[in-house]
Design a protein around this nucleic acid. Structure first.
Lengths: 213, 213
DNA sequence: GTTGACAATGGCACAGTGTGCCATTACGCT
DNA sequence: AGCGTAATGGCACACTGTGCCATTGTCAAC
């Protein structure tokens, strides 16, 4: 008979684990959304998810971790999207395109999470805590792309990753502020600001170089 | 008689508070340095500082806060330094100059703190937690400068602030990695990468514009 | 110098967190 | 059916962060 799974005995159990993880996540977000992030305790989440307090801690290190999970997933999707962009695009253009592809669906699927973060500084911090991890992944994605295109230094990949994360944050913020606007428009606005900044600084450097000559 | 202080009765008490705050800070950093951030408990810090546990929490919200205080001070100094740069400099040049002025002294004065952060992820996170606050201050500093010079959007100020923070982080990292190199050299290298990235992206955008025409 | 506010401190007490440990259960496999 | 491993639940415990109140210290006016 054909053995279709990756690991012989683990895949089933792994799937079940993911189910439990999802169950806990749903319970947590529901409670956060209803009572506010700060007013929810781990015990309540565990109870709602139908597991013991102890088991909760086997899946998430804390309720902060549950918030972070969303950001983590976004980061992974974003890194993949960056890798998938056409090689002709510059790194920044790739970042812009990737954000356009990934951010809107993510925000739509996790609208409750966004609202939770909006209302609680602690929740925002929990999300923010994921950024360094996420930045590493994105840095790596840029490095992969760059292997087969323009040659950029490792420093530049990190700067690009940081810019990408900042841009994401700004897009989310604008999206939350004026709800109606379509995401692609917001992304364009943010990246227009980046490019404008680039141009201005570059011209300044150019004229300085001319003056020195 | 001349009254030299700001507030009539508060200034003395305020100074005493700062003394206690400093005492606690020193005790904490000493312990972190000796036993590692993760192995130090609030009780030990309080004992070493000669105050009660309860009083510790009146000055710092947690031991993480103690780590964050260093970053907070750096951020304030940096924001001020940015404001103080000559108006002729572009925002990015101002950032570069400000980092050159502020970072080296700060790192030198807080070398033990840097080593603590180096050895403990939790300690690094505690520092990282301050970044959003700090970024706001730097954003504001750029906005102040820009009032009397080039006109940049609020979005651009935030991007600049983010770049400045990232640059700082990268400089510290490089400084820790190869100890010998002088800080100005490191700063130059990091900002060279930024400018190089700007040029590359700008040229790309330029050629795209030409192609469309 | 005494007294009277008022801020700072210390010492509980308590709810909540995160983890090690072990008994129990559930499940996959032969 | 039965064996073995992994997941779970239920303590127990050390630590955190905060409200509360009694005590101490400090400054100012009398």
């Amino acid at each position: 008979m054909a053995v279709q799974d990756t690991s012989p005995r683990n895949s089933l159990q792994a799937k079940k684990q993911e189910v439990v993880r999802g169950e806990i996540w749903n319970a947590a977000i529901d409670l956060f959304f209803e009572h506010g992030f700060d007013n929810v305790h781990v015990d309540q989440i565990a109870a709602k998810a139908g597991v013991s307090r102890r088991t909760f801690f086997r899946y998430y290190g804390s309720k902060e971790d549950v918030m972070g999970a969303t950001v983590k997933r976004y980061g992974e999707a974003l890194a993949q999207a960056i890798r998938d962009q056409k090689a002709e695009l510059s790194s920044l253009e790739a970042a812009k395109a990737a954000i356009k592809q990934v951010l809107a669906p993510t925000l739509h699927q996790t609208e409750r999470v966004v609202q939770v973060a909006e209302r609680s500084p602690a929740a925002r911090m929990a999300q923010f805590l994921q950024v360094p991890l996420l930045e590493r992944e994105v840095t790596w994605a840029f490095a992969n792309r760059s292997k087969r295109a323009t040659k950029e230094s490792s420093l530049e990949h990190r700067i690009l990753a940081s810019l990408t994360m900042t841009a994401t944050g700004m897009c989310v913020e604008i999206w939350v502020r004026d709800q109606k606007r379509p995401m692609p428009e917001i992304v364009d606005e943010v990246f227009a600001a980046i490019v404008h900044l680039f141009r201005a600084e570059d011209e300044k450097a150019e004229s300085a170089r001319r003056a020195k000559r």
